[in-house]
Write a protein that binds this DNA or RNA. Structure first.
Lengths: 250, 250
DNA sequence: CGTAGGTTTGAGACTCCTCAAGCATGGTGG
DNA sequence: CCACCATGCTTGAGGAGTCTCAAACCTACG
């Protein structure tokens, strides 16, 4: 659980399938926010808690670099990873409604977050309406994505869920202009399984099958790094899982 | 699938376990919105589509009465109920980010919605900042609730999921000042199962078990109406499902 | 009164979980 | 430097839970 020396946000690199301006949108938005809000910057390391369930809500956080998980806790002690956040994402929306945060936000790597007091943000929005739309867009995206997660968990078998998880991860990186052909999962199998509603053993088996089918590859050393030569192959794998025996030997 | 003659929002009635001002918060918020926004009112009937995935985003909708489902659609044709909405809830947040709605919103009963053009809402917010906080609260609640749904699906066995679903439904009604001792499920078993990530048969079996354990009851005629004498019993049932064999016979 | 849609219940199949063992990796201290 | 340990990963065997398929029932409606 110690910090790796290298932060997880290398200089943006072209994604495998080249959209030359990939990541530009994220970068532009971040620039706007930084200029308008002059946020306090805070460096976090693996395991650092950005905010905690029950803590009084005051700030939103914008992720400039690093990688974070959102963990929901139930009264009876169940623990559930309900979200994963990358550069450009916001943290803390869950706190607006109840005056207290509803879950934990934990860094899974070294990174930098921008602290934005909610009241200061609202004030800035009156001066600069574009900010308000950026905020709403971020919340809207989160709502839409949470629904997609629910659909994945509800409609996909275990193997497809893992494939879809990797696909989404790769696409998130691509949107931010980062390379997707080899990604480093900074989550254990147990965390992935928790997020996807399955056991760590099932995650491991799913990954093994994906590797056997050459949909993904493993780096020479260790199995934390996953090679994704073709993101489309992951989508195809998902479809194959959904069609039990399509036109097998047609 | 025809409309029932009676709309689903009777005059607010005290909830089973009396919080004398239950529903007051919802009512107050709706009053504020109505006064400030003077929204266009629209009556909908069972099956009416409020908005559709792909349709150009322009409006948000506030639910004054009735009962609605949010349906996500995947490219490959999977269909997933990802949300249920009651009086006081908002519809359409998913459209803000992408300029188009990301899912379908469908009425499951006769009801009334208030149409609020997004740009008009923003304009009104500059004049009346309290509106902005109401909007953000609504979005925040939605985010928090979506996460709770994901946790339910990921961590609870089938029976507990159904119990938790009923508990949440009853609490939603209670918050709005409606009676919770006998509720009418306006969803088929298939829809419930889809929402909870299980088959209609499993839902049916779960309900039968809940009835056998006297956690719920069925009305004399038909099995659409569910009696919930004690919402706490549903929570207890969920806990019992989570503790496989706790202190069985000491 | 017949039909259609929704529900219940059963039996068998299949997926995924549980439990267990063995292996790999990386850090620590002798 | 290497033995040692902790942690995480993989794989197998067996079992629990859920799904699939099928039949029968019930209710509403024409």
């Amino acid at each position: 659980m110690l910090n790796t020396a290298t932060p997880s946000t290398p200089a943006p690199v072209l994604p495998a399938i080249g959209n030359a301006i990939a990541g530009q949108h994220t970068a532009d938005t971040l620039k706007l926010l930084c200029e308008q809000l002059k946020p306090q910057r805070r460096v976090v390391h693996t395991g650092d808690v950005v905010y905690q369930a029950g803590e009084r809500f005051a700030n939103l956080y914008i992720l400039n670099s690093g990688f974070f998980k959102i963990v929901n806790l139930s009264i009876d002690g169940r623990e559930q990873v309900v979200g994963l956040k990358f550069r450009g994402d916001w943290l803390g929306f869950d706190g607006i409604a109840g005056t207290r945060y509803a879950c934990d936000a934990v860094a899974m790597d070294t990174g930098e977050i921008w602290v934005v007091p909610y009241v200061a943000l609202l004030e800035a929005c009156t001066r600069h309406p574009a900010l308000l739309h950026v905020l709403h867009t971020a919340m809207s995206r989160e709502i839409a994505h949470d629904r997609d997660s629910l659909m994945s968990v509800c409609t996909l078998p275990a193997d497809a869920r893992v494939a879809d998880f990797l696909r989404h991860w790769a696409e998130s990186l691509a949107e931010r202009g980062m390379r997707t052909d080899e990604i480093t999962l900074r989550m254990t199998r147990a965390e992935i399984g928790n997020y996807l509603g399955m056991t760590l053993e099932s995650v491991s088996r799913a990954l093994s099958r994906l590797a056997r089918d050459n949909v993904i590859g493993f780096a020479t050393k260790g199995r934390r790094d996953v090679q994704i030569p073709d993101v489309g192959a992951l989508s195809a794998f998902v479809q194959r899982c959904l069609a039990p025996a399509p036109a097998m030997l047609q």
